[in-house]
């Protein structure tokens, strides 16, 4: 099967290289994890795939016409805005099918009146449940309690089985082990 995403010895960074050369492929129905200690450039590599960070060497190849959804660690700035979860989902075209049951009755509550975990899951769902072939997730378990992580794990597996390709950056080893088909561990980059 042709991969949706291939990284050929990619070195990514912002002003200077922040990762070692990374090689990976990601096909439909597959979940690949990127792990490693803080500062090895996991989020930077994801940002390079999304077109935000700079590629210093190597190449990123995406399948033609592939549609991408990206979740970053930045929480959508909703403080002071009268915006509900239902409106947020409608905005990104998300169907909300992956929402946990305990959030369904909070969909019409303003996002800035929800707990951090509830808001995070809704923001995550607004990305996950949109029509996309390739999903990029950066630390999706931040702010989630144990039930939230368990629900997210099941939902990601369902999404993969439905044909999505998912690339996950996470420092949560248990989550990565539970959800990923393959894990790539990034090593520190020695910048002179």
């Amino acid at each position: 099967m042709m991969p949706l995403l291939a990284l050929d010895d990619v070195v990514a960074g912002w002003q200077q290289p922040a990762t070692t050369a990374v090689k990976l492929t990601l096909s439909a129905r597959e979940i690949v994890g990127l792990t490693g200690p803080n500062g090895v450039g996991k989020s930077t590599l994801l940002a390079a795939v999304a077109g935000r960070a700079r590629v210093f060497s190597g190449a990123i190849r995406r399948a033609p016409e592939v549609s991408i959804a990206l979740q970053t660690q930045d929480v959508p700035p909703v403080d002071g805005l009268p915006l509900t979860g239902r409106e947020l989902l409608a905005m990104t075209g998300a169907d909300g099918k992956g929402l946990p049951p305990w959030l369904l009755d909070r969909l019409d509550t303003r996002l800035d009146r929800l707990s951090g975990g509830q808001r995070h899951y809704l923001a995550l769902s607004a990305v996950l449940d949109t029509p996309a072939d390739l999903v990029l997730l950066d630390e999706p378990t931040n702010n989630l309690d144990r039930a939230g992580v368990a629900h997210l794990t099941r939902h990601l597996r369902e999404l993969a089985e439905s044909g999505r390709a998912i690339l996950v950056v996470s420092h949560d080893a248990a989550f990565v082990d539970a959800v990923c088909d393959r894990v790539i561990k990034l090593e520190p980059c020695d910048v002179a």
């Binding site: 991408i68 959804a69 990206l70 947020l88 905005m91 990104t92």
Partner: peptide, 17 residues
């Protein structure tokens, strides 16, 4: 309206698409 909301909440939305 929708694009303005998206640009504020998900600044990367336009680029990745």
């Amino acid at each position: 309206s929708q694009q303005l909301l998206l640009a504020h909440l998900y600044p990367d939305f336009f680029r990745i698409r």
